[in-house]
Computed example of a mutant assay.
Amino acid sequence: MLAAVDHVQLAAPPGSEDRLRAYYTDALGMTEIPKPPALAARGGCWFRAGDVQLHLGIEPGFRAARKAHPGLRVTGIDAYAARIAATGAPVTWDDDLPGHRRFCSEDPVGNRLEFLEPLPVPD
């Protein structure tokens, strides 16, 4: 039986690791975690924030998906959006999901990421 999502893997083009590191650590506030040696030889980089892990794997002929994305729950969504925007990354708000505030951003290679925070339930 499924218990949790262990990680989400996104693809990236060869040679993009330094740009990805800047976005995932500076803009998103994640920490890079070491890849196991056998996997490190393939390139890419892994990041963690709390229980959330995002793995960026190198894919020759990479093309960013236009629709597919991880949906990441955040707290303090306005401050988080401001943090991301301050690094020059795009922040696009979307009010179409009832009961949530959400926005999307893109990493430096075009991977879409969705950030959402549930609205408080009225008493």
Rank of each mutant, 00 (worst) to 15 (best):
Y24T: 00
C45H: 00
R102H: 08
H55W: 11
P34Q: 02
A79V: 08
A11P: 08
P37H: 03
A89R: 05
P13N: 13
A81E: 02
E59Q: 15
G43H: 11
V5D: 14
G71K: 07
A85N: 06
V52D: 02
L54M: 12
T92W: 05
V109L: 13
A85K: 09
G57K: 12
Y24A: 01
I84W: 04
S105N: 06
V109G: 10
S16I: 01
K67A: 13
G76H: 06
E106G: 03
R42T: 13
P98R: 05
P14H: 15
F103H: 02
L97S: 11
I33T: 09
A27P: 01
V74Y: 06
L113Y: 04
R48T: 01
S105T: 13
R83I: 12
G15W: 13
E114G: 08
G43Q: 13
H55K: 12
A65N: 05
T25E: 02
G15C: 15
Y24F: 07
G29A: 09
R112Q: 09
I58P: 10
T25M: 01
A85R: 09
G76W: 10
L97I: 08
F47T: 00
Y24R: 00
P70Q: 08
G29K: 05
A65W: 13
Q9P: 14
R21I: 06
D51I: 04
Q9M: 15
V8Y: 14
L20V: 05
A22H: 07
A89V: 02
P34L: 08
D51K: 11
L28D: 02
L39G: 06
H7A: 14
A68M: 08
M30T: 07
A38I: 06
C45N: 06
R112V: 13
A85C: 02
A68W: 04
D26I: 01
E32V: 02
P90S: 11
E114A: 08
D96E: 11
A22C: 05
R66Q: 10
A68E: 12
M30K: 09
P98L: 00
E32N: 07
S105K: 03
A81R: 03
E114P: 00
L28I: 07
R73V: 13
P60F: 14
L113R: 02
K35A: 10
M30P: 06
A81H: 05
H69Y: 03
E106L: 04
G61H: 11
L113F: 05
A82M: 04
N111M: 08
G50I: 00
C45F: 00
G50F: 11
D6W: 11
A11L: 15
